[in-house]
Design a protein around this nucleic acid. Structure first.
Length: 427
RNA sequence: GGAUGGGUGGCCGAGCGGUUGAAGGCAGCGGUCUUGAAAACCGCCAGGGGGCAACCCCUCGUGGGUUCGAAUCCCACCCCAUCCGCCA
């Protein structure tokens, strides 16, 4: 959500910022409505002031036994005048708000121009794709050959884009999630959270999924929404709050299921576990002072990278270009993991600095040490990392010629000492 | 799902038609005192919006309504607590 005063101050700059997102200029129309709104509001307020004065006079008159009939008559007329102004101001306000809440965040100057993912920039890389010495399989080939990954069973239960895992693979999924939470709580200072997987409209609005992206979500019959990411409940924990500055930054992590309708993804990634309606993810959320969000963004991304490094995966960091950066983000780093079976880099984490965009929508502020409210906090979110995709990456990266999979050493304690998943590891 | 009681400023809590945007307390900030601290005392201290400004307007869960005037009365909805029922 944008501050209309910012647009008033620099309409050309705002239009230029939206142009980077491929959007037509809106500031002229918006500011015209804004001027009308303020005129109506000012006129209304003058009448309200008069009404308040009359009410006070009438009150005093009644107590002293004076005749207040004339004053009451004036007030009655005044009320009729106010109704028109009130509805006009309200309608304009709603119209302006409707436009503002559908506009994406302003991009950071560092974000490269470009319309789609082809313009994303690779910033760094850890490890290099290497020849495994045999023809690598894709994760679903590995999992199905082991008898531990079953898409047919999932289809019977729920339809396409779900999976059933068994035995060692089910345990590996659990191990990955546990391990990531432990890394972030022990090494990176995040507080572990358990949060609702169903949220209300206000929460979805606060982080920006609503009103524009309802089609991407699942909705319950009682009007709640299944979270597409723990970013929603975690970030909204500070909605409506005025936080003491000394309590910042607040770092939270949670392992949750995530639910996505994948409405626009028909035909993409139809095989395997890459794109599912339900998947688990460890999410990282930071609430920071505005001065510190850029540094926190770097720190958060590095925290996610730590997980990938410990899992002995090959990955690279990219910065998303203008056209690929999400609605609420000013700047997004994606981490892409190398999948030898697919011979492709695939997103496994996405870390965004939303600055005050979500905070403004949800009313999340902080109060400085001098006791004065000084403004909106900044919010950041990132995957630390997507568990399902980490499972895929582990399978494809650590697969062996005989069809077994070596488990990264950091996971051994979580696997009850198991170091390899092979055909007999059904459990 | 049924019943009852509640939602007031950062927190607690009074107010239950007429200078109440809101007593009092706690916390916070500034000061006096003190070698320093504590205590005591004094002062400040909700948010949002409009206006060049003086200043004004809005907000006591949300939305309507009654009234010259609503935190206070009426209606609907939301949320919370407790008890009952059901239940992992």
């Amino acid at each position: 959500m944008h501050d209309i005063r910012m647009i008033r101050t620099d309409p050309a700059g705002f239009d230029a910022a939206m142009a980077r997102r491929g959007l037509a200029p809106v500031s002229a129309a918006l500011l015209a409505q804004d001027a009308d709104r303020r005129a109506a509001q000012t006129a209304l307020q003058e009448k309200q002031a008069r009404r308040n004065a009359l009410a006070r006079e009438i009150g005093q008159g009644k107590r002293s036994g004076a005749d207040t009939a004339a004053l009451e008559a004036e007030a009655t007329v005044l009320r009729a005048d106010m109704e028109g102004l009130e509805s006009r101001a309200g309608a304009l306000d709603a119209a302006i708000r409707g436009v503002l809440e559908a506009l994406p965040n302003v991009l950071d100057p560092d974000v490269p121009d470009g319309a789609d993912e082809r313009a994303n920039l690779v910033l760094s890389q850890s490890g290099t794709p290497r020849d495994l010495g045999f023809q690598p399989k894709q994760h679903f080939e590995i999992g199905e050959a082991l008898g531990l990954m079953d898409f047919a069973a999932a289809a019977k239960l729920a339809g396409a884009r779900f999976v059933v895992l068994r035995g060692a693979l089910a345990r590996l999924e659990r191990a990955l999630g546990q391990f990531m939470i432990d890394v972030h709580t022990r090494e990176h200072g995040y507080t572990e959270m358990v949060v609702p997987s169903l949220v209300n409209d206000a929460a979805m609005y606060g982080t920006g999924q609503l009103p524009k992206f309802a089609d991407d979500l699942f909705r319950t019959t009682d009007g709640r929404w299944l979270i597409p990411t723990a970013e929603v409940p975690l970030t909204n924990t500070v909605a409506g709050e005025i936080l003491p500055e000394v309590s910042l930054p607040r770092r939270m992590t949670a392992l949750t299921d995530c639910f996505r309708s994948e409405a626009g993804a028909a035909g993409r990634d139809t095989r395997g576990m890459v794109r599912q309606h339900q998947f688990r993810k460890v999410e990282l959320v930071s609430i920071t002072h505005p001065d510190h969000s850029a540094a926190e963004h770097e720190r958060m991304t590095a925290s996610a990278e730590t997980v990938l490094r410990l899992l002995e995966l090959t990955y690279r960091r990219i910065v998303l270009c203008a056209g690929d950066t999400g609605f609420g983000s000013t700047k997004t780093f994606d981490l892409e993991v190398w999948l030898p079976g697919q011979q492709a880099w695939r997103e496994i984490s996405s870390c965004s600095n939303c600055r005050d965009f979500q905070a403004r929508r949800m009313g999340a502020r902080f109060r400085g040490a001098d006791g004065k409210p000084v403004g909106f906090v900044h919010t950041l979110n990132g995957s630390g990392v997507a568990v399902g995709r980490a499972l895929i990456a582990v399978l494809e990266t650590h697969q062996q010629a005989d069809g077994s999979v070596l488990i990264p050493q950091v996971l051994w304690p979580y696997m009850g000492g198991m170091e390899r998943i092979s055909g007999s590891a059904g459990g």
